[in-house]
Design a protein around this nucleic acid. Structure first.
Lengths: 125, 125
DNA sequence: AAACTATATTCAGATTTCTGAATATATAGA
DNA sequence: TCTATATATTCAGAAATCTGAATATAGTTT
């Protein structure tokens, strides 16, 4: 029965709407916290808390670049789990359009995008 | 963000050692409660509680046969999730040998097995 | 009908998880 | 060095979950 401890821990780690959303965002590679904040329309502290949990579980890591912290997934196997959950739940939440929900994201990555002509902007940018 | 509600619910449902173990047991098709009891070495009430949760989530159903209740998985997609979790957690708990842990199971299915010569008994019986 | 068996349900206390607010830290820029 | 920005950490109360024990129920056998 202890054999299920690790699996249970992994499942508990991702069984949270914000954490699932963050992982979906990180499918496209590293992203800064402000980006997640803008996309999810959640408060900074709240996202940071969930990132801490993902970090403690060893699922993500981050690097600093100036003021920004860029998070990335270090266990890509987790995406297979997300895919399976997607199918099994009948709720195709994966690949949500990566468009800022409420606010503007001030990070360099996002501001760069703003200078690209509209018709060249991908919804997964 | 509500798009993740269903997925979160599904994940929470299976994020429990006993429930994972039960689902693994049900990979081979329907099994009665006494069988799970014998295999997992857990108390009846405890298993019944977890079965109720699996039932409420719509993951399993059951049929009565005399005194025995035979449970089965009705959403086989869940096994893809278990497979993915298995790989991702690095903990290959799937396909645990289906051998009674502590006690004897009194159900017809198991007693039937006891009359088969030893060398014909599969560990996944 | 009475006793027995397999399983379900209920409940309360313990534990874990969540949430928001407040505050701290580290870097950047003036 | 002072201020602003991006992010992290801490904490306490609320909410959800877990657990075991007690009890209920529905078939079965006698």
């Amino acid at each position: 029965m202890d054999a299920y401890k690790k699996q249970t821990d992994l499942l508990k780690t991702i069984a949270h709407p914000t954490r699932l959303a963050v992982l979906e965002i990180l499918r496209d590679g590293e992203q800064c916290v402000c980006h997640m904040e803008a996309m999810l329309g959640l408060r900074q502290a709240s996202i940071s808390q969930q990132l801490m949990i993902l970090r403690q579980s060893g699922l993500v890591e981050f690097r600093r670049d100036g003021l920004n912290m860029y998070y990335r997934v270090v266990k890509p196997e987790i995406f297979s789990v997300l895919d399976a959950v997607n199918s099994a739940s009948g709720q195709a939440a994966a690949r949500i359009a990566h468009i800022h929900a409420n606010t503007e994201c001030p990070c360099p990555k996002c501001n760069a995008v703003q200078n690209i002509p509209l018709d060249q902007i991908s919804v997964y940018g």
